[in-house]
Simulated assay, not measured.
Amino acid sequence: MTTVTDLPQGDPRLLDTDLARELLTSTELARLAYVAPDGTPRVMPMMFHWTGEEVVFSTFGGARKIAHLRARPPVAVTIDTAAAPPRVLLLRGPVTVTDVRGVVAEYAAAHERYHGPEQAAATLAEINHPDLLMARIGLRPTWVGLLDFVTRFPGGGTAEDIVRRARQ
C-alpha cells in the first residue's frame, strides 16, 4: 500500500492510499466544481460512486449542468470531512457525460451506500420508469491531492512550517 507521504500532490497514485480509499467509500457528499458557459464557476454537492477507476456522478436528463459539462469538461472535485483535523481528497480532470435510459447503475450503487438497501430500493422504484433519462458523469482523475492536516498540509511542509509562515 502506498503511504500518504510517499507521493507529491497531483500524483494520481494518491488514489491508492488508505485516506483516499476511505473518502472514496464514505458517505460524504462530493462537491463538483465546473465552469458554466457564461464563465462563472458553479459548485454542486452530489452523491457519487467510486468504480475503482472513475468517480461517477449522475443527474436527471434536462439538468442544466449536463450541457455545461459537455461544453467545458474539466472539473475539480473535493470530498472532505468536517471533523478536526479535516481530511480532504482533491481531484481534477475532464469528465465524460453519457446519456442513459433508465437508472444509471452507479446512481443505484451510490443510493445504497448513502441510504441503505431498503431506502435505496424504495427511491429507485419510485423514479425508474420507461421514459427515465439520466446522465452519467464520469471523472477519471488526472490530478489528485490529499490533505490530512497531520502529515499533509496545504502548500506542503509541516504544521510548524505553516505556523511560521503565518507569523511572517
Score class of each variant (00 low, 15 high):
51 T>Y: 03
130 P>R: 04
123 T>C: 01
157 G>T: 09
75 V>Q: 04
9 Q>E: 14
15 L>I: 08
133 L>P: 00
127 I>W: 04
61 G>S: 00
17 T>R: 04
76 A>P: 03
51 T>Q: 06
14 L>T: 06
91 L>C: 05
24 L>H: 11
16 D>F: 03
22 E>W: 14
36 A>I: 09
129 H>S: 12
50 W>D: 05
66 I>Q: 02
108 A>T: 08
166 A>F: 09
165 R>F: 08
90 L>C: 07
48 F>K: 08
65 K>V: 04
7 L>D: 08
118 E>P: 10
124 L>P: 09
84 A>E: 15
100 V>E: 07
86 P>H: 05
65 K>M: 15
134 M>Y: 03
100 V>F: 08
94 P>H: 10
70 R>H: 11
83 A>Y: 03
84 A>Y: 13
76 A>N: 00
141 P>R: 01
100 V>K: 08
45 P>T: 01
99 D>R: 13
133 L>N: 09
106 E>M: 06
118 E>K: 12
138 G>L: 01
165 R>P: 04
112 E>I: 05
137 I>P: 00
40 T>P: 05
65 K>A: 06
114 Y>T: 08
51 T>M: 06
139 L>D: 03
94 P>V: 06
4 V>M: 12
95 V>G: 01
29 L>F: 14
68 H>Y: 07
114 Y>V: 09
96 T>W: 03
10 G>R: 07
15 L>R: 02
111 H>M: 14
107 Y>S: 13
162 I>L: 14
42 R>G: 06
144 V>N: 07
98 T>I: 06
62 G>N: 10
117 P>W: 02
64 R>M: 12
128 N>V: 09
45 P>F: 01
16 D>R: 12
153 F>H: 11
143 W>A: 04
118 E>L: 12
159 A>P: 04
5 T>C: 05
138 G>E: 13
155 G>L: 03
139 L>I: 07
82 A>L: 13
89 L>G: 04
47 M>S: 11
84 A>N: 11
150 V>C: 08
168 Q>R: 15
81 T>R: 00
164 R>E: 12
4 V>P: 09
66 I>C: 05
152 R>K: 13
55 V>T: 06
114 Y>F: 15
141 P>G: 03
67 A>N: 11
163 V>N: 05
63 A>K: 10
124 L>E: 10
22 E>K: 15
71 A>W: 09
121 A>T: 11
113 R>N: 03
143 W>I: 02
74 P>R: 05
13 R>F: 02
39 G>A: 12
116 G>E: 10
154 P>A: 06
166 A>M: 13
34 Y>E: 00
